[in-house]
Simulated assay, not measured.
Amino acid sequence: MSTARVLFHPLTFIEERDGITVGRADIESYALLPEDGVALLRRLADGATAEEAAVWYERTFGESVDMADFLDTLRDLGFVREAGEAVAEPPKLRFQTVGRIVFSRPAWVVHLALLAAAAVVMVRHAELRPHAHNVFFTSSLIAVQVGVALFQSPAVLWHEWFHLLAARRLGLASRMSLGRRFYYVVVETQLDALRSVPPRRRYLPMLSGMLADLLLFSVLVLLAAGDLSGGLSWPGRLALAVAYTVLLRLAWQFYVFLRTDLYYVITTALGCTDPHAATRAYLRERFRRLPRVGPSDWRTGDWAPRDRAVAPWFALITVGGVTAMLVTVSLWTAPLIWQFAHHVGSGLAGGGTGDPHFWDSIGSLLLLSLEIVVLPLYAGRNRKRTAAPPVPAPSS
């Protein structure tokens, strides 16, 4: 066993319910270690050689340790600083000052004032309250679909921007990236660096996206309120249309079974690691006798103790998320679909091919079919083509 000292990059140690999260924030590498493993790591970091640390561990905990395997794990995590390797420097962060301003006490006064003002005008003016008919800000269905769609990406970017700023405020190297879910391009914020701060400091970065949605909704309602004096013009109606879609996206965060922002808030509050996967395994185990229920690794899986203990109760939270989805669909989404169908039906049954509303309805249906039929089929074929194994070349 080597008698040389083991060098380490700067590490963070955060106490969790099932152990201690040790991490290297600059490369976002983290591991949940038991207390004896952390004690051994700290012994090495304090200057003990591998041989001295192994002797100390056996004397302290009454059992031997495979030091070579332990060090290999630490190297794989990027914790060990090899000979000649420079000490990792904290990443240079942009927008940290902006984050501190956005979530400062004066800013919170502004945030709350906007929310309160929007609530007041909605109480006073029924036409400003969320309703499915707000989405149809013009008689042209094509204009409605295109107009609402154009504002979705900026609204999502605003949501993710608040996630990034809340994490940057803490000095964490959060970042935004483009991804794809099925055939949709999505913006995602990587918040792995939250594992380097105590759990109580993780809530604001997790919830800040919902705050952004509430603020955007409030601003749009207030813009529409400023247009009430002479009757709502199309900009005011467009603001209410976008506000309705923002509200739908905010409601989506309550579908915790889809691992939304609230899922990670609940996971942090419960001190869990992956309750979603543990709960799925638990439910498959409970209902394994039912047809078409897949095999479960509940009994054999290496679940974190806290995840295993919480799984039966997290199943109820999952049911709550499904209930929230059903309520949203019933109260907000279904009326929107009904309104769209009514407009299309009226256009098709109107003045025939000489009526502009007839052709507007036809074009709207074509746009809808492009989104829910053509693009999914194309994405599915493209995914199968990507996943298919390469055809071997014929041998000569």
Rank of each mutant, 00 (worst) to 15 (best):
T12H: 14
F13R: 03
G19N: 00
V22I: 07
V22F: 09
D26W: 05
D36E: 12
L40R: 05
R43M: 12
D46Y: 12
A54I: 06
W56K: 11
R59C: 03
G62F: 14
S64Q: 09
F70H: 09
D76W: 11
L77I: 05
F79E: 02
F79T: 04
V80G: 05
G84Y: 10
E85P: 01
K92T: 13
K92Q: 13
T97G: 14
F103D: 00
F103P: 07
P106G: 03
A107L: 05
A107H: 06
L112S: 09
L115M: 07
A119D: 08
V120T: 10
V121H: 05
M122A: 11
F137Q: 02
T138H: 02
T138G: 07
S140I: 02
V144D: 01
F151M: 15
S153Q: 09
A155H: 03
A155T: 10
L157A: 15
L157D: 10
L157S: 08
W158A: 03
E160A: 14
W161P: 00
F162V: 07
L164G: 02
L164K: 04
L164F: 11
A166G: 07
R169M: 11
L170K: 09
L172K: 03
A173W: 01
R175P: 07
F182G: 15
F182A: 13
Y183R: 00
L191E: 00
A193G: 04
L194C: 02
L194T: 01
V197N: 03
L204F: 01
P205A: 01
S208F: 05
L211M: 08
L211K: 02
V219Y: 06
V221E: 03
L223K: 01
D227F: 01
L232A: 04
W234R: 13
G236S: 04
R237N: 05
L240N: 03
T245W: 13
L248D: 00
R249C: 07
Q253P: 01
V256R: 04
R259W: 10
R259Y: 07
A269S: 08
T273C: 14
A277W: 08
A281D: 13
Y282R: 01
E285N: 13
F287I: 09
R289V: 15
P291T: 08
S296N: 08
T300M: 12
G301M: 08
D307N: 06
W313P: 00
A315R: 04
I317P: 02
T318A: 10
L326M: 11
T328K: 10
S330T: 12
W332T: 01
A334Q: 15
P335K: 07
V344W: 08
A349E: 07
G351F: 06
T353N: 09
G354A: 12
G354Y: 06
I362A: 09
V373T: 05
L375I: 07
P376V: 09
L377I: 11
N382V: 13
R383N: 05
T386P: 02
P389M: 12
A393H: 08
S395M: 13
